[in-house]
Amino acid sequence: MGESGDIDEIWRRAEGGAVAILDCREEIPCDPCEAVCARGAIVVGKNVCDLPRYDPGLCNGCGRCVAICPGMAIYLLDRSSRDGGARLTLPYEMKEEIKAGDEVWALDEDGSPLGKGKVVKTAKMNKRDHSLLVTVDVPEEWALKVRGVRIRVMSIGEPLEVRGCQREEDHLLCRCEEISRSQAREYAAMGFNSLRALRRFSRVGLGYCQGRFCQAMLVDEFSTAAFRDREGVGVFKVRPPVRPVKLGRLGGENG
């Protein structure tokens, strides 16, 4: 039995009505499920990184944990219907609208469609936004496999294989002043081994972005080329203004 509750017990209990299934397997700082469970069925405890301990025996299937879980990792299973199917309640936050009566794709954890299910109910997850809890009927054998429902399933195709060897081409490091990687290496070979020295010599870091986008890459490049640690290579000296400002405004103009 895992901390997320014994699956056999959940399966059994679902015969009597909705019960939560927690698919939370990793120690990350997170505990809202504990707070919303009025029955004390989910306990994280003092350490916010601990996995939730879940007792399905206390769950009344209210679904609040499904609506609050940031990881969308909780759903409800209900096997009480007499026709033998499974009724699932899942969080839904996609663009295409879903409403009761719709036929939707039921997807497994890899996004593969298991087949279609019928939406019996939708409810707003909360008052503040447009996300939904979707309740859908699916065949019983999918009950533990379905992880999402969709109107539209992506068809992206496979990437194409490219033949022939890829020659390493030169490319820009500094977008603003259009200085290439090979040029930066030449500077390093000339003995400029700190960014401050480099900027005095070239225009690197003096462009529009003030080195904001090239600095980290240049530090790596120079620390490799000059066998110097990164603190030795250093950063560009920061000069005012750190944001573009029209000169007239510094003179007191407002425009």
Partner: peptide
């Protein structure tokens, strides 16, 4: 986080670890 990974995987997004942009 695994939960973030799970959410995109269940949408059918392929993940390519060990791949570098050329």
């Amino acid at each position: 986080y695994e939960v973030h990974l799970d959410r995109v995987r269940r949408e059918g997004v392929p993940i390519y670890p060990g791949h570098r942009i050329i």
